[in-house]
Design a binder for these strands. Structure first.
Lengths: 353, 353
DNA sequence: CGAATTTTTGAGAGCGCTCTCACGCTCTCG
DNA sequence: CGAGAGCGTGAGAGCGCTCTCAAAAATTCG
């Protein structure tokens, strides 16, 4: 607006400069020092009641709001945690985030999330951004991973929690889900029901942890020499699941059981089967993984493996905020998935179609 | 650890102090001034190639990462946007966030979200926290609202976008969905199908914008004097929807159509009906609002009103980052929901049960 | 009532960075 | 060959806050 709004110091009258008030201005208005204002804002008890009131009045009058960055820079301790997830649209990740957030909120912390979309590059960027923010702790709940990451992270003196992809180290905790155990349970269960033609629906084959899951499926299924099997891979999510089921059928493979890498994809598998008039579970059984809240609302409701996301979320918070000596040596927390049987699975059909 | 780690300047040897390197240290190692390091880090072209390399080597050697807070404090412009939502677990909000985030990411911005859980107090806290962070723009996508908010916000010279609950003003844009238009369409549609006993499933009766929706339903339905109707209220989400349907039936009211305030709740309504063996849409029709991605994956798939969340998300980004003169006067963007007919609705049953 | 405490307050030094100036250096050109 | 133009660089002043240290004010007590 003002063409001659120069950068010259406006001396006394600096109202016009920055739109927001500073501690300095509050102090001036309240006729006290900045130290005193700071004390009031931080609830230091060593302030006379009358002074406190005077300061608070000035704060209100100027619509003062402390500058978070200045505060941190000046030495206040952060109460911000960072969390990086692969796909926040997948309820699995979202639930963990929400659980951590709830705990954090309660304890006066904040948590900022970033989404990588299963992109290694973005993971690196996100980590750097979190470090630049000087978060008090960082949770890395992703499926992609980069060896470089460990190096960068171990340099920092920062509590880090990994999910699945990490390895314990100084200040680093890893939460590991015994995926193979879960897979084994599913396969045993399906085999016992008579299934001998199985498909695995996965996503993002290029990422090693996800690759791993596919491998686990293959490994486990080979224990049953009489089981035919096939694996397909699509994008994470219902649409990907649907595409996967489509692809499977297009290949001419007609499984009696479809094992999905997670519930989110299973939603799409279920949908595609219904579209084609294939009955679940009468003709095809479907399983997921995670036990997202939605699983029991689906029609048919989904047989899956439970992963205690709420517990994990809380654990993440505990680990990130624990006094450093508690976790300086690094540890690994192991979680066993439990089979939750619902409507989407049943005995294999008597005769092949 | 070191009991005598005093605050005395450690002169040359300050490696032991802060764990992370500073610009200063990088400058020292590279034998240049801090200004030059800053120039290199900010890709200023006016640096000799050799100097740049020397600096970058020092950066790598020290594992240097700029301190975001110091950077901002020193005058760099923020590339962080804030978004506050009522319930991030509701795909409606999540989709808007993701759409905004995607655009932001692309343009080199970040967006930090906060979740209020429909809590007025938390909304206020979140807004303050965002202001303290000095975000470049703030999107308030919530259903609760506080008159005090407008005052606080209009004080700041900050682009703000409201969804539904705002009113245009200086630097403030409001995105308004013509809810009543949507409701009208649904009711016309259902009426034409012969429905004469309808229920409305809402949530959070205490919040005026949500109250408003219930009121809109009542208002619209009264245009049809021969339609019996009832409204119930539960928590947002599938579980709430289920409880609502349960409550409805427990009241002895047997609707032929259930109009849900959003898709998220409709999921639960569908589930409860199926549990009770009530056929959808043969015996009861169900509608949602929002057209979340899941709607078409449900069984039966959900008739709903589309709200272009992706478009809204992009719009939010545009509005928050537009040059100030473009929106200094405030505007209101109006969105018309469109009916999307799927499987969950059909003609009213011939005779009452 | 003055000394000894205790409580309340202020001055000022940073925190780690950006940015403005001004300076030195290398070129160009009259 | 000297003046002027550019480029590359360094010095240093903040940004808005917290915190230490010491001084000032209030309170207590012999």
């Amino acid at each position: 607006m003002d063409p001659k709004s120069s950068h010259a110091p406006t001396s006394d009258d600096d109202r016009s400069r920055s739109r927001v008030a500073t501690l300095q201005q509050v102090a001036r208005l309240a006729r006290v020092s900045t130290a005193t204002v700071s004390r009031v804002l931080n609830n230091s008890p060593r302030v006379r009641e009358e002074t406190r009131r005077r300061v608070l009045r000035a704060v209100r009058q100027l619509h003062y709001l402390p500058n978070y960055h200045a505060r941190l820079l000046a030495g206040a301790k952060t109460r911000t945690l960072g969390m990086i997830v692969s796909n926040i649209e997948n309820p699995f990740f979202l639930d963990i985030f929400c659980a951590t957030e709830a705990r954090a909120q309660q304890a006066g912390y904040e948590v900022v999330v970033e989404n990588t979309n299963y992109d290694r590059q973005r993971l690196l960027e996100s980590v750097r951004s979190m470090l630049a923010r000087r978060v008090a702790g960082l949770a890395i709940i992703v499926s992609e991973i980069d060896p470089q990451l460990f190096e960068e992270l171990s340099q920092q003196n920062l509590p880090v929690v990994f999910y699945d992809v990490g390895r314990p180290g100084p200040n680093m905790t890893n939460i590991r889900v015994r995926y193979e155990k879960g897979m084994q349970r599913v396969l045993e269960y399906l085999y016992a029901l008579g299934h001998r033609r199985m498909a695995f629906v996965g996503h993002h084959a290029s990422l090693s942890p996800l690759q791993e899951r596919r491998r686990t499926f293959l490994q486990m299924v080979r224990r049953y020499p009489d089981v035919e099997h096939v694996t397909v891979t699509q994008a994470d999510g219902p649409a990907g699941g649907r595409a996967a089921m489509n692809q499977l059928l297009a290949m001419g493979f007609r499984p009696t059981a479809v094992v999905c890498v997670n519930d989110f994809m299973a939603i799409g598998v279920l949908r595609e089967l219904r579209d084609r008039g294939i009955q679940v579970p009468e003709e095809v059984s479907v399983t997921g993984f995670d036990n997202i809240a939605l699983a029991e609302f689906l029609n048919p409701s989904l047989t899956t493996l439970n992963i205690p996301r709420r517990r994990i979320g809380h654990m993440v918070f505990e680990l990130l905020t624990a006094p450093p000596e508690h976790l300086s040596m690094g540890q690994e927390i192991v979680i066993e998935p439990e089979l939750v049987v619902r409507e989407s699975t049943g005995p294999a059909p008597q005769r092949a179609l």
